[in-house]
Amino acid sequence: MGSVRTNRYSIVSSEEDGMKLATMAVANGFGNGKSKVHTRQQCRSRFVKKDGHCNVQFINVGEKGQRYLADIFTTCVDIRWRWMLVIFCLAFVLSWLFFGCVFWLIALLHGDLDTDYKDDDDKSKVSKACVSEVNSFTAAFLFSIETQTTIGYGFRCVTDECPIAVFMVVFQSIVGCIIDAFIIGAVMAKMAKPKKRNETLVFSHNAVIAMRDGKLCLMWRVGNLRKSHLVEAHVRAQLLKSRITSEGEYIPLDQIDINVGFDSGIDRIFLVSPITIVHEIDEDSPLYDLSKQDIDNADFEIVVILEGMVEATAMTTQCRSSYLANEILWGHRYEPVLFEEKHYYKVDYSRFHKTYEVPNTPLCSARDLAEKKYILSNANSFCYENEVALTSKEEEEDSENGVPESTSTDSPPGIDLHNQASVPLEPRPLRRESEIGSRR
């Protein structure tokens, strides 16, 4: 089982795998120059863009038009607004034209077009017409509009002379109601789609790998820009990579689940303020055997998904993003964004995407760390350097704002901070800030 798991979770494809794949392509008759073999020097295209759209195009789909027309309502909801407006206008105009032609044909076959009612006051002739005051196609078209929109100006009306005319008036009224219901329903469904809710759900630009509770963890940050909550919010993550099976089958995008606390339930989050999602790199993680150097040379993509129900409509929305291997910062942490004021908490989104480097973060893999092949620094050293990194950030910001350097908390000259780390230190809580992250 261990060997199978290692093969499945191998992220960085070796040169031997690339040569094996190329040999397979030639042997199977696919070596026509169009096949692409992804190596370390040639990274694959992003499968999920940063804005959440999937970078996929469908080609050679059989009976595409028929399949889309069979699900016309979903098609109308998914198309762009400009095409929705075109369909909206065409549906009414074509129905008016169709029934206008029908009423014109009825008048033509009944002989109503030969009668001039402007110079004739004989009401008996008017009563013999199928539709009064309809003696041309324009008049028939206007009567069709008046019937379907129930305008009723009063000059044109159907008589009991022709039952077919009466039937067409009733039929057009029913068709008009159906068109109204369909168009209004599609427009309302399109307006109520929770897709735009994703514009106020954000992911951090970069993911980070750092120590948390004595273990290497992959972390990324999510935030909600609205005050309205995302009900039943939960997160998922998958690692996408290519691999070759033991039988020699090439899988271009193998999807591997990344555990973010599904078993323990901590994948469900209360997204009021930005939260750091934590994936513990343990023996079940696809990143277990990867060191910093392996991450730098790897070719994979981590897709992160945030799902929840919109509070206003109770409709489920899904926000997506992805991180390539070069977008994962090893040995970094996110800057705090949640600050405790006197009577409330304040979230500073200008710090949302910012990170700071944490010294002495192990550069080895989580496996080597678990097997004690890498000796961690003293816990006080880690905490102290973590505090120094934050303090230096604040000093830089104070210097930019014009604060005198004498007010900063610099260490005395001639003292090495790293050498001082081995000395037991008193706890130094942050002056006014605390970061709330997901705790395992």
Rank of each mutant, 00 (worst) to 15 (best):
P286N: 00
M24V: 07
N326A: 11
T147A: 03
N326K: 06
V235P: 09
C217G: 02
R212K: 15
D410C: 10
R40P: 07
E283V: 11
C217M: 09
I305S: 12
V170P: 02
N419G: 09
Y323P: 00
T200S: 14
D51K: 12
H343W: 04
E371P: 06
R320Q: 04
N28M: 05
S228V: 12
L216I: 02
C319Q: 05
R82W: 10
V388D: 15
R268V: 06
D160Q: 06
I302Y: 00
H110C: 00
V93S: 05
E357W: 05
G261H: 06
F30E: 15
P336E: 14
G111A: 03
T75K: 14
F99L: 01
S127R: 05
S381H: 06
D254E: 12
I178K: 02
L329D: 02
Q255C: 08
Y9E: 15
G265C: 04
Q172N: 00
D116G: 12
N326V: 03
C177H: 15
I87Y: 14
L97I: 05
N28P: 14
L108P: 02
C364H: 06
Q66K: 15
Q238W: 10
H110T: 01
S408T: 10
L216T: 01
E341H: 08
I59T: 15
F58K: 15
E16I: 04
W104T: 11
H205D: 15
T316E: 15
S124E: 03
R320D: 02
V48W: 06
E400K: 10
I87W: 15
F352I: 08
F382R: 02
W96N: 03
E232V: 10
Q41M: 09
A192H: 06
K342S: 08
I436R: 10
S127P: 07
I209Y: 00
N360D: 11
V337I: 11
L113R: 02
F98H: 00
V170I: 05
L113C: 03
A22D: 13
I266H: 10
I436K: 08
A379R: 11
A22M: 05
I258V: 05
W220A: 09
D296M: 08
P252D: 15
R8T: 07
G52P: 00
A22H: 12
M168N: 05
V388L: 03
H205A: 10
R212E: 07
R46L: 00
F155E: 05
E247D: 09
Q148N: 02
H229P: 12
S381A: 09
G152S: 05
Q41K: 03
T159V: 02
F167C: 14
A389K: 13
T74V: 07
T115V: 12
M24G: 15
E385K: 04
S124Y: 14
Q148K: 03
Q255N: 10
S10A: 05
I251G: 15
K292Y: 14
N297Y: 06
V358G: 00
A325M: 03
D180N: 04
E283D: 03
D160V: 02
C130G: 03
F137R: 02
H418I: 13
F339C: 12
E397F: 07
F103P: 00
Y153E: 04
V26C: 14
V86F: 08
P404T: 07
Y323R: 01
F73M: 11
L239C: 09
P427N: 11
Y9Q: 14
W96P: 02
V126G: 03
R351D: 04
H418L: 14
A140T: 01
V175A: 07
P274R: 02
D284F: 09
A233G: 14
T355K: 01
K354D: 14
A207W: 00
K36F: 09
V126F: 15
R221I: 00
F339K: 12
F262N: 05
I256Y: 08
D284N: 15
T409C: 12
K292N: 05
F171K: 03
I174P: 00
E394R: 09
G100L: 01
M219E: 13
T147I: 06
E357Q: 08
V222R: 00
P412K: 07
V231I: 08
F203T: 03
S242Q: 13
V303H: 13
I277G: 01
K49W: 03
E249M: 08
S136V: 00
K342G: 09
R46M: 02
V310I: 13
D78S: 14
L85D: 02
I178E: 02
V388E: 14
V235G: 03
Y345F: 12
S14W: 03
E426N: 09
S392P: 13
V26T: 10
V260A: 09
R367V: 02
A107K: 00
S285N: 00
A27T: 14
P286C: 02
A233T: 10
P163V: 06
V304H: 02
F143K: 01
F103K: 00
D160I: 02
G214W: 05
M19P: 09
Y384K: 05
N198F: 10
P194L: 10
I179R: 03
L239Q: 02
G152K: 04
T6L: 12
I183F: 11
G111C: 02
L90S: 10
S3M: 05
G223V: 10
G331I: 01
A189W: 15
S13L: 07
N224E: 10
K20E: 10
E280T: 12
A25T: 14
V272K: 08
E307H: 11
H343G: 09
I209S: 01
G18L: 03
I415E: 15
L253M: 14
F167Q: 02
N7G: 14
I295Q: 01
K20S: 08
D296P: 07
E341Y: 10
E199H: 13
S124C: 05
G100C: 02
A370F: 05
V272Y: 10
I164R: 00
E396F: 06
V158I: 06
Y117F: 04
P359A: 13
M219C: 10
L97M: 06
P336H: 15
